[in-house]
């Protein structure tokens, strides 16, 4: 019983000797992938909640409603084709965020204000 473990979440599933999908040719073209953003309530930003497949934008919206807002989680939904998003790499050796790393003077705590100055 060696290849099993409880990481199935809903129950133990094998974690070895199971193919991972690379090289499997799907027999039909897949609907495009959409990223879903939900505004939780008025006054808040839309927040990314996940993705789904849909044939067109209208179906993407309806599926997003059914998958991500079954319990009043949102008052507004955006769906965006995943291939239309341009993203930075969060990590790697990417100097993308370096420009903000050394500018401590952009933060209010950089400045010493005497204790007796109120409301600042």
């Amino acid at each position: 019983m060696s290849n099993l473990s409880a990481e199935g979440g809903h129950g133990a599933v094998p974690l070895q000797g199971v193919p991972t999908g690379e090289g499997v040719t799907p027999p039909e073209p897949e609907w495009p992938l959409w990223e879903v953003f939900v505004r939780g309530k008025r006054g808040l930003n839309h927040v990314h909640v996940g993705s789904l497949h849909a044939a067109d934008d209208r179906m993407a919206l309806l599926h997003a409603r059914d998958v991500y807002t079954r319990r009043n989680e949102g008052v507004s939904i955006w769906v965006v084709r995943a291939d239309a998003i341009t993203a930075s790499s969060p990590d790697e050796k990417d100097p993308m965020f370096a420009p903000s790393g050394d500018k401590v003077y952009r933060h209010p705590t950089f400045y010493d204000i005497p204790d007796n100055v109120p409301h600042m």
Partner: peptide, 17 residues
């Protein structure tokens, strides 16, 4: 009870995971 998988002694993947 089986949903949690085999006993730890028989779960060689657990340590890596």
């Amino acid at each position: 009870l089986m949903m949690f998988g085999p006993p730890d002694a028989d779960s060689p993947n657990t340590a890596q995971s």
